[in-house]
Design a protein around this nucleic acid. Structure first.
Length: 801
RNA sequence: GCGGGUAUGGCGGAAUUGGCAGACGCGCAGGAUUUAGGUUCCUGUACCGCAAGGCGUGUGGGUUCGACUCCCACUACCCGCACCA
């Protein structure tokens, strides 16, 4: 009997939707389980085979949890604002909203053809005004508490998208999205003070269950470092503060370096005798692109300031001051003290400009190279610190600095505030107006959502203004504060805005009064299990944690962290082992796979392909094994006989129930499927399957292959509704153990025989049986038995000399 | 440079409180059924060897009765960050 997957899969997808079996309830006596996958950006290309991997994985978890009696929320939606849609709209003269609608319809149809048990009654879309009303509302809360502010600053400007990018969106000096060069441009931008949450974003990682690599990457990105700020004095009398992580090396300072943009330079204009040279260097630094300036390999350059010097506060020594573009204004104080004896960059710089190098920690040879690996060394040439260990010196110097009032401990972060405006059309309008008299004024809540106006042209402008700026009717408005003339903000929010809180909306997606009701959030929070890509670790994941902490602080959400557990899937690569992409021509469309092999086979294949957390190349030849597995399951019908679980298969069934359940929770879908395959092989070896056995097998397989299991359940007239409404089988620990077990017998660590023993036989009994084995007896004959080891149920090792 | 990870048959991959390496699947070889087979079923399959046996988890050491697993020193590759003082 051939399994016709096409009509059968469609049939069950329709039935599930009609019956609403996957709709979550906000009121239930059952325990809740909130599973979340990152909602997709509905691009024009449609789904590729990478998308279903995480969806299927959490679908398996969600389906299994439902069978176990949980009230499961497994929602989906569309992260639909963004550049590709807007660009497509411009090119083809279609409104971005129309493009979005079309793409969403295609994505939805594709996802539904995979049999994912999403709760479609909670579908959301970030471009829906009923949704972005609340994105704007959150922005206003940030603004009213001083966490959103406007700032004139040099920003990353993509020359092709004609748009500002966040630091996180610039990769190797080019735009992450289109690969065009990124240059610096001074513009007035909306910023969000994520830096205010830097410490808590690190600390609270202890509260959540994230993979170590995700935690490490976030910590690395936030970049906390501890050190001290120390005040040097310039010969002009100005205070010159530096940040250092090594205040213990203060006696080794032989010069200072300022960033070319350091504000004191302008003040010293008349004192610096080589001002022309300094100005030329400043200009050159300003012209460099982000990429040129951060290129690591390049040689350090700088200019010495003539006529101004600095005085080291610990020993009164006068030292020269340089400017160099390797010192950044955006980190620390924009000025550093240079210790060439113990810092590689300072050492190179000192060698190049012939500056003195002083050893302050013993152990290296500072004439040959900087001695940086010196945490265990002893201080020398360091006045009050001489003879101390580095560790002791750190404590003593800090006491000294504080006593004299010339320095104090300081924590610094690499994390910068989040550049939040984009000069594009297809994003949430920022609900702020600018009034000559009152400055930036928040729109009253009653005017939300502030809808995107219908513009004729979405073309980005070369002036760096948003396309919205041309809509004078829309731009010109009145100030909500004083009633005078005012202009609307014409920049829009970045794509990350809508995705920073979407998981809250799923809890109560149709609420018109608040972003989600208190009751709904208290019931569903936090997300129990959130799976997503590693590429979002320092973008979406960090941003949404920040917004959630803010919403927690103002009493909107009940938990300080949004996601209790995070997991990450590996990428599906092309057949050639390279990343799937249109340009490489190795993209596989899931529609073709579903048509040829069926959704169940596709799901099994993607889960069986390898370790879920690692990337794996697409290999259609092993698809056959999964299809074969589905058909062999289907053919169980041909050998089904009445009866309960047979004695000889009892242990196997208990073991498989245990393993399948545990493996699903541990993301080990590949071994869960392998266990089911093994059980199937064992069943076929007996020549038949009993009705009870088939029922259990069907329920175990259902989360992986939902369609074929439903159809077989119906064909067999097992009753009680659909498979997805049954109860997950329960195993007994005691019955996972065989009565008779095989024990390997080793002599001096090498396996020489295998014996069958009763499971409850004690050590002496097993050893006696092992030694009576002919092979073993001859091996140990005439030798002295030194040691005898028995690992219960596994092996015996006899050490003989 | 810093941080994280990986290395096992022809291939994807199993196996971790140290205890039978190669589960499961693909592929391949042989056989059965079939008019036929890109179907199904059975058998075999790390490597060397006819066999007894030997050898084997990136490399080199170590601990142990016993190491894919633990320790030390390397190599190669992948990912993230990177002039962060």
């Amino acid at each position: 009997m051939k399994y016709e997957h096409q009509p059968i899969e469609k049939k069950w997808q329709d039935k599930w939707e009609e019956a609403g079996v996957f709709h979550a309830s906000n009121e239930s006596d059952k325990p809740k389980f909130y599973a979340l996958v990152e909602f997709p950006y509905p691009s024009g290309q449609g789904l590729h085979v990478g998308h279903p991997r995480p969806y299927t994985a959490l679908d398996i978890v969600a389906r299994k949890r439902r069978l176990q009696g949980y009230n499961v929320l497994y929602p989906i939606g569309w992260d639909a604002f963004g550049l590709p849609t807007e660009n497509y709209a411009i090119k083809n003269h279609i409104h971005p909203a129309e493009v979005t609608k079309k793409n969403v319809a295609r994505f939805k149809q594709q996802i539904q053809s995979l049999g994912i048990s999403f709760d479609w009654s909670r579908e959301i879309n970030t471009t829906d005004p009923d949704y972005y009303k609340w994105t704007q509302w959150i922005f206003l809360q940030l603004f009213q508490r001083g966490l959103a502010y406007k700032k004139e600053m040099a920003v990353n400007w993509c020359t092709s998208c004609k748009c500002v990018l966040a630091n996180e969106e610039v990769v190797d000096g080019v735009c992450e999205r289109c690969g065009s060069p990124v240059v610096h441009k001074v513009k007035s931008q909306w910023m969000l003070k994520i830096t205010e949450y830097a410490q808590r974003l690190i600390d609270d990682l202890d509260l959540v269950d994230y993979p170590e690599r995700v935690k490490a990457q976030q910590k690395n990105w936030i970049g906390r470092s501890t050190g001290a700020e120390v005040d040097f004095t310039a010969t002009t009398g100005d205070k010159l503060t530096v940040y250092t992580t090594r205040p213990d090396t203060l006696y080794g300072v032989t010069y200072m370096v300022l960033a070319p943009e350091h504000p004191l330079l302008e003040k010293w204009k008349d004192t610096i005798s080589n001002w022309d040279e300094v100005r030329a260097y400043q200009d050159a630094a300003a012209r460099k692109s982000e990429f040129e300036r951060t290129e690591v390999a390049k040689e350090k350059t700088g200019v010495r300031l003539d006529g101004v010097a600095a005085v080291n506060p610990v020993n009164g020594v006068e030292i020269p001051i340089f400017i160099s573009d390797y010192v950044l204004t955006s980190y620390g104080t924009g000025a550093i003290m240079a210790v060439p004896g113990h810092d590689t960059r300072d050492w190179e710089f000192a060698k190049k400009y012939g500056l003195p190098i002083i050893e302050v920690v013993k152990g290296g040879d500072v004439e040959k190279e900087a001695f940086t690996d010196c945490d265990t060394g002893i201080m020398v040439n360091s006045g009050i610190l001489d003879g101390l260990t580095v560790e002791e010196a750190k404590v003593k110097i800090k006491e000294f600095l504080e006593e004299k009032g010339i320095g104090h401990n300081k924590v610094n972060f690499k994390l910068r505030d989040w550049v939040f405006s984009r000069q594009r059309y297809w994003g949430e309008p920022i609900p702020i107006v600018y009034c000559e008299k009152c400055g930036y004024v928040a729109l009253p809540e009653s005017e939300l959502p502030l809808r995107l106006p219908d513009v004729k042209s979405y073309e980005p402008t070369d002036t760096g203004e948003s396309p919205l700026a041309h809509m004078t009717d829309w731009v010109n408005t009145t100030c909500p504060h004083c009633g005078g003339p005012a202009k609307r903000e014409t920049d829009t929010m970045p794509q990350w805005a809508g995705s920073s809180w979407y998981f809250l909306r799923y809890m109560d997606p149709h609420n018109q009064e608040v972003l989600a009701s208190k009751e709904a959030m208290e019931y569903w929070s936090p997300v129990d299990w959130y799976n997503g890509g590693m590429e979002h670790t320092t973008l979406h994941l960090l941003y949404s944690r920040f917004w959630h902490k803010f919403l927690f602080d103002i009493g909107v959400v009940p938990t300080s962290e949004p996601y209790a557990k995070r997991t990450s899937h590996g990428m599906i690569l092309g057949e050639n082992g390279e990343k799937m992409s249109k340009s490489r021509g190795n993209v596989v469309n899931p529609d073709d796979v579903v048509r040829e092999y069926g959704a169940d086979t596709m799901r099994l294949y993607e889960m069986f392909i390898g370790d879920f957390e690692k990337s794996a190349p697409w290999n259609p030849s092993s698809m056959k094994g999964c299809r074969r597995f589905v058909e062999r399951f289907w053919n169980f019908q041909n050998i089904a006989v009445p009866g309960g679980v047979r004695k000889e298969l009892e242990t196997s069934f208990h073991k498989t129930i245990k393993k399948t359940g545990e493996d699903i929770e541990n993301l080990k879908f590949n071994t869960a499927i392998a266990a089911l395959m093994s059980l199937m092989n064992e069943i076929y070896d007996t020549g038949s399957i009993t009705v009870e056995e088939l029922k259990i097998f069907t329920i175990l397989l259902n989360p992986f292959a939902p369609h074929v299991t439903e159809e077989l359940w119906e064909q067999m007239k097992f009753g009680g509704g659909m498979v997805c409404q049954q109860a997950w089988p329960v195993y007994e620990e005691a019955k996972c153990q065989e009565d008779t077990i095989e024990v390997a017998v080793q002599v001096n660590g090498k396996v020489r025989a295998r014996i069958l023993v009763a499971a409850d036989l004690d050590k002496d009994g097993v050893l006696a049986q092992a030694k009576s084995e002919a092979k073993i007896a001859s091996e140990i004959a005439g030798k002295k038995l030194v040691k005898e080891i028995y690992v219960p149920g596994k092996l015996v090792n006899i050490v003989a000399k």
